[in-house]
């Protein structure tokens, strides 16, 4: 095996990695916000809002990630009259996708807060909104850290799918290099190791956060 091909193309591959990391960062942020917001709607006391949220969640969960990206990239522009770049479409698609999964983690996080504490909050005169903000959410989010980071690591791996719609993230860059140099073993191996390193680092961050912010019981 001769890894010179990797060193030769390092700047291009690193650029691809940069796009992967940037996408992941945007989607982690946007997806979490969207997932929590969707979770609030999903657990609302108004039946219509709940049903809209459920319909969305079931639709997304029944659709492959790639098809979601296709819908955003090819299907939306004719309807809304704005053409996304491949990169924008991938970020939006990932956020829409991962939000529908984070919502379930959010619901289980909410449910993990003992009902008694909510009663204590209400009994002291706090409004439902205040109980949510001060008592439920701070605990739910901290309990959600392990499962959220699970989703984030999955997401990091999913970003490779964006290469199909032409985004030059890490996988896209690697495939482009291989098309030119045709040394698949070294290139794919490097690709796999790169993803592993980044994913493992992310899971370590999650583990550290969990230890640091765990609620003592």
């Amino acid at each position: 095996m001769n890894f010179a091909v990797v060193w030769r193309n390092l700047p291009y591959l690193l650029q691809g990695l940069g796009v992967t990391l940037q996408t992941a960062a945007l989607v982690i942020l946007g997806g979490t916000v969207f997932g929590v917001a969707l979770g609030v709607v999903r657990t609302s006391r108004i039946p219509l809002l709940r049903q809209v949220a459920i319909a969305y969640i079931e639709a997304i969960r029944g659709t492959p990630l790639l098809v979601v990206l296709f819908v955003v990239y090819f299907g939306l522009p004719p309807i809304i009259g704005y053409k996304f770049t491949a990169y924008q479409a991938s970020v939006i698609g990932f956020i829409l996708f991962i939000g529908a999964y984070i919502v379930e983690d959010y619901r289980s996080g909410l449910a993990s807060v003992p009902r008694g504490q909510i009663e204590a909050g209400l009994a002291s005169g706090l409004t439902v909104g205040q109980v949510l903000c001060c008592i439920t959410l701070p605990q739910a989010i901290r309990r959600m850290i392990p499962t959220l980071f699970n989703q984030f690591v999955r997401l990091l791996k999913f970003t490779s799918v964006a290469s199909v719609i032409g985004v030059t993230e890490l996988t896209g860059a690697a495939l482009a290099v291989n098309a030119r140099e045709f040394q698949p073993i070294e290139i794919i191996l490097t690709l796999a190791v790169s993803y592993f390193v980044v994913c493992y680092a992310l899971s370590l961050v999650g583990r550290w956060l969990n230890t640091r912010y765990a609620i003592q019981t």
């Binding site: 003992p114 008694g116 009663e119 204590a120 909050g121 605990q139």
Partner: peptide, 9 residues
């Protein structure tokens, strides 16, 4: 309450 229901965080 019987179970105290203090906020642990």
């Amino acid at each position: 309450f019987q179970q105290f229901n203090l906020y642990p965080h």
